[in-house]
Amino acid sequence: MNVFRLLGDVSHLVAIIILFLKIFRSKSCAGISGKSQVLFALVFTTRYLDLFTSFISIYNTVMKVVFLVLSYATVYLIYLRFRSSYDSESDTFRVEFLLVPVAGLSFLENYDFTPIEILWTFSIYLESVAILPQLFMITKTGEAESITTHYLFFLGLYRALYLANWVWRYHTEGFFDQIAVVSGVVQTIFYCDFFYLYVTKVLKGNSKLTLP
């Protein structure tokens, strides 16, 4: 474990908690893409299949359970508990355009042609594009509540910190996970435009992010 990966995991946890609390306390999921949240729940499900078969550490197990529980709870809030506030007209990204290529690529480019490894690879590729429905929804509505932008900031920051973690592990352990690194770079690039808007608009104190 190194400080970059720890900060990355904390940033990821903060993002997921911010979103869950925003929906739970405001009793509304306006402006939130339910499709992205379903994709994230699928990412955790296909990545953490080894939750019961291999024990890494208490930390690893607890974080996996927390991510799984919170992501499914968020999907429940959006599609069941507060479904009347779900803006399905704006959440129109065709996720099949993500799932099919990601599934195909995970069969082509993986470390081992075994179910666990292919599903893990699928989760890595899927995570790099899972935020696209949410970013697409914001460009479509032209705005986002500031709490939603804070969620996106910490979510984007988490994988950027993981990139630093991989640089660190390469230099200290010679560890290099090509599939995770390439996907992580792609994932972080998708946030760059948002990061610019977040720094120049939201941090200037605007109550919400409105796209130019």
Binding site: R5, H12, I56, N60, Y111, W120, D177, I179
Partner: peptide, 10 residues
């Protein structure tokens, strides 16, 4: 590809 995964990352 040889499998470098240490499976310790979330």
């Amino acid at each position: 590809m040889d499998n470098p995964r240490k499976k310790d990352e979330l």
